[in-house]
Computed example of a mutant assay.
Amino acid sequence: MLMQKSLLYKLLKLRNRACGLVAGALLCVPGYIMAEIEYSSIAENAVIMYDAPSLRADKLYVASLYLPVEVVVNVDGWAKVRDSSGSLAWVEKKALSQQRYVVVTVPLADIHQSADMNSTLVFQAEENIVMEWLDSDAKGWVKVRHSDGQTGYVKVNQVWGS
């Protein structure tokens, strides 16, 4: 009987140690998985996007004012960014703004008065229209402002950059 208790004690101790290791490892994982995506926007009109972090690198395309981008890598004076199409490019950090914008990714996005499908439809925005990101306080919705001043809520799956 004493031998069984001793064996049981050892097994429980091993199980607790294993659970502690697994729990500790899992505590490290969410910080990596849930790392917040850093969005910025283009702060100037006609910003050149490069294939490497250098003014001597090949020019890929020209980005317009307010284009939302996801910052993927930061290096001295440069940021590697991704746009809504998934394209990667390098841009000078001085051409970026912390002001956030979103771009419509569906043919026609519905912008509602509140974060509710049954609320009043304020306006609709066509694909590729850029709107100022105001807040993401309602799950599944983004509060936006159109360049003409109208504000409302759009479903998060209708825009990119939120």
Rank of each mutant, 00 (worst) to 15 (best):
V144M: 01
E92V: 10
G140I: 04
Y9A: 15
V29F: 13
L2I: 13
D110Y: 14
S114Q: 08
Y61G: 01
N45P: 10
Q113H: 08
E132Q: 15
C28A: 11
N16E: 10
L88F: 14
K5L: 12
P68Y: 04
Y61D: 05
S64A: 12
Y153F: 10
E36G: 13
I37E: 14
A125G: 01
N118R: 14
E126W: 06
H112K: 14
Q99S: 13
L27S: 09
E132T: 08
V91F: 06
Q113V: 00
G20Q: 08
A52S: 09
A35P: 02
D148A: 04
P53W: 02
L121G: 00
V71Y: 03
E126N: 13
Y39F: 15
A18I: 14
E126D: 11
G86V: 06
A35N: 12
A125L: 06
W141H: 01
V81G: 05
V144L: 00
P30G: 02
L11D: 07
Q124F: 00
K143F: 02
D58M: 08
I42M: 07
G24Y: 09
S84H: 12
N74R: 15
L134E: 04
S84I: 03
V106K: 03
K155N: 07
Y101D: 01
W90L: 00
I37F: 05
S147K: 14
Q98M: 10
R100V: 01
E126P: 08
M3W: 11
R56K: 13
I48V: 15
A109M: 06
L7W: 09
Y39C: 02
N118D: 09
I37H: 11
W160H: 01
V71Q: 10
D51N: 15
V144I: 14
P68H: 04
K94E: 09
W133S: 03
L88D: 07
V47W: 06
V72K: 14
A18E: 10
P30N: 04
R15T: 14
V29Y: 11
I42R: 07
Q158F: 10
Y32N: 05
Q4I: 12
W160F: 03
K13S: 13
M131L: 15
F123Y: 08
S85F: 08
V62Y: 03
